[in-house]
Simulated scan of single mutants.
Amino acid sequence: MASDRCCTFLEILLAIILPPLGVFLRFGCCSMEFCICLLLTILGYVPGIIYAIYVLIALGSDRDRDRDYYDEVA
């Protein structure tokens, strides 16, 4: 649990420095989240940061919950 918080903190820190990198570490290269973040960062640095932090905090926790559910079922 503590390692998950540490990874999330590092992803958010990287998302502030270079937004697509933080999203890439969580979702991968060919995901829709990464493509949107890359586009927003090209169009403007601040929208890229805002979207990256939103995706890492809001959508990242949903994926973690889904993964825990599937681990319990299996």
Rank of each mutant, 00 (worst) to 15 (best):
L21C: 03
Y51W: 10
L59A: 02
C29Q: 09
P47C: 06
F34V: 00
C29E: 12
C37M: 02
C30A: 08
L18M: 09
L25P: 02
V23L: 02
L38F: 08
R67T: 07
V23E: 04
I49S: 06
D68R: 14
V55A: 11
L38C: 06
I49F: 06
D68W: 10
R5W: 15
G48M: 06
V23C: 03
G28Q: 00
I17C: 08
I12D: 00
D68C: 13
R5N: 15
D66C: 09
I42Q: 04
Y69V: 12
L14E: 00
I57M: 04
I42N: 05
R26E: 05
V55D: 05
A58S: 09
C7G: 07
R65H: 12
C37K: 01
V55Y: 03
A2E: 14
C6M: 15
C7N: 11
I57K: 03
C29T: 09
F34S: 04
D4F: 12
F27M: 02
D64L: 08
D66V: 12
L59P: 00
D64S: 09
L40A: 06
C37V: 01
C7F: 06
S61Y: 11
R65W: 11
P47K: 05
M32L: 12
I50A: 10
G28V: 01
M1R: 15
V73P: 00
C30I: 06
D71M: 12
L13N: 04
D4Q: 13
A74E: 09
D64T: 08
D62Y: 14
L40S: 05
Y70W: 13
P20G: 00
I49K: 08
L59E: 07
S3Y: 15
T41S: 15
E11T: 07
R63Q: 11
Y54G: 08
Y45R: 11
S61L: 11
I49E: 03
L10M: 15
G48S: 08
F27Y: 10
C6R: 15
C35H: 13
L14T: 06
D62M: 15
I57Y: 00
T41M: 07
D66W: 13
A74I: 13
R5E: 10
L21M: 10
G60C: 05
F27Q: 02
Y54M: 04
D62R: 15
F9D: 07
R65A: 09
V46I: 14
A74N: 10
Y51D: 05
C29P: 04
Y51T: 07
E11M: 14
Y51R: 07
L10S: 11
L40T: 03
L10Y: 11
A74V: 10
C29F: 13
R65T: 13
G22H: 02
I50D: 02
E72P: 00
A15L: 06
G28K: 01
C35D: 08
C37E: 01
A52Q: 01
D62L: 15
D64N: 10
F34I: 01
P19M: 00
I17S: 08
L10I: 09
F34N: 03
L59F: 05
C7D: 10
M1G: 15
I12E: 01
L10Q: 10
D71H: 10
A2H: 12
I36F: 11
A15P: 08
S61E: 13
